[in-house]
Write a protein that binds this DNA or RNA. Structure first.
Lengths: 157, 157
DNA sequence: ATTTATTGGGTTGATATCCACGTATTTACG
DNA sequence: CGTAAATACGTGGATATCAACCCAATAAAT
C-alpha cells in the first residue's frame, strides 16, 4: 500500500490552484522570458535592464538602496554588478562621505545602451499588459507592491 | 555635460512605477523569501516544495509536463531534480512505453517530508494573503495565470 | 522500409539568487 | 575618549534559471 504518509491529493489541487508563491514564480518566469528574448539583441536580461534603469539618476545610489528598491538580496546585487562592470556599463566608487558605502554610476556606454533598450521595453511592456486582456494593470501593480514589502522606497534624486 | 545620451529621468520613473516585469520579479523574490524562511527547518525551498507537490499524484509525470506546469525551462527542472534525487526524495525511471521519457515519482521519504511541509505552507500562505489587505486574492491569481501563458495545463491524474 | 522530421532529455556555460560568515567603517554610549 | 553596537559590503558555497548544442527514440513521409 503506497503513499501511507502522502499528503492527500486534494491538498495538491489546492496548492496548485491557490498558492500565490507558485503563481508568482510562474508568472515571473514567463514574463522574464519575454523580456529576456526581446532584449537579447542588446545582450541584456530583464534584471540587467531594471538594474541599469535604477541607476539612471543624478545622485549615484548605494548598493543597499538599490537592492532594497529591487527587493533583492544585497549580495545578489553585488553579483549582478560584476558582468555589467566587466562590460564597462557601470562604475563603482567608494563614497568619500562614508567609506563603507559604494556609489554606483552608469558609464556613457551604460547610458547609451539603456537608451537603446527603452523602445524595446515600451514594446514588450505593451505586449505584456495586453496579456491581461480586460484586467486593470494598475490594480495588479498595487497587489504586487503589497507583496513586495515596504521596500518601495524612494528612487527620487 | 554628462548623460548626453541618457534616457530622460521621466522614463526611469515610468519604468519604476509601471513595469510589470519589475513588479513581478520584486514580489516573486519577496514572497519566495517568506516561504524559504518558513520551510528552512525542513531544508526545503519554495521551489522544491512546489516541485515535490506537483509529483504527488498516482500517475508519475514526465519532465516536460512538470516543467510546463511550473512554467520553467525543461533544463531547469533537470537541474532542480538533482539535489532532490541526491537526498532520496524523488526517483526517476525511464518510461517503458516511450523510452525517451523519464517518469518522476516521490519516494516514501519525499512523501513524508511533503506531508510535514503542508502545515508550514498553510500558515505561510495565509500570511501572504494577509499582506493583500482588502484585495481579492483570486483576482490576483487570475491575473498571474494570464501572464503565465497557456501552460496552466492539467495536473489531474 | 528507409529517410526525415519531431519529440523528450541531457550537458555545459553564464548569470541569478540567497545564506552564513567575515571585514571595515561609523555611530552610540559610558 | 574608547569600547560596543550598528551599518555597509564582500566572499564562498549551494541552488535556480535559461540558451545553445547534442543525442536517442518515436513518428511521419515517400
Amino acid at each position: 500500500m503506497p503513499n501511507c504518509k502522502s499528503p492527500p491529493f486534494e491538498i495538491t489541487l489546492k496548492v496548485r490552484d491557490s498558492c500565490l508563491c507558485l503563481h508568482l514564480q510562474r508568472a515571473a518566469r514567463a514574463v522574464a522570458r519575454q523580456f529576456d528574448e526581446a532584449l537579447r539583441p542588446l545582450d541584456l536580461t530583464n534584471g540587467q535592464f531594471s538594474l541599469l534603469m535604477s541607476l539612471n539618476r543624478s545622485e549615484p545610489p548605494s548598493i543597499g538602496s538599490v537592492s532594497a528598491l529591487l527587493a533583492m538580496d544585497r549580495t545578489t546585487l553585488t553579483a549582478n554588478l560584476k558582468p555589467l562592470e566587466r562590460r564597462g556599463l557601470v562604475q563603482t566608487a567608494i563614497d568619500p562621505a562614508d567609506r563603507r558605502s559604494r556609489r554606483l554610476t552608469l558609464t556613457a556606454a551604460g547610458s547609451a545602451l539603456l537608451a537603446a533598450a527603452v523602445p524595446v521595453w515600451e514594446e514588450t511592456h505593451a505586449a505584456t499588459e495586453h496579456l491581461l486582456s480586460g484586467a486593470d494593470p494598475e490594480r495588479l501593480r498595487t497587489d504586487l507592491r503589497a507583496l513586495s514589502g515596504p521596500r518601495a522606497v524612494a528612487l527620487c534624486p
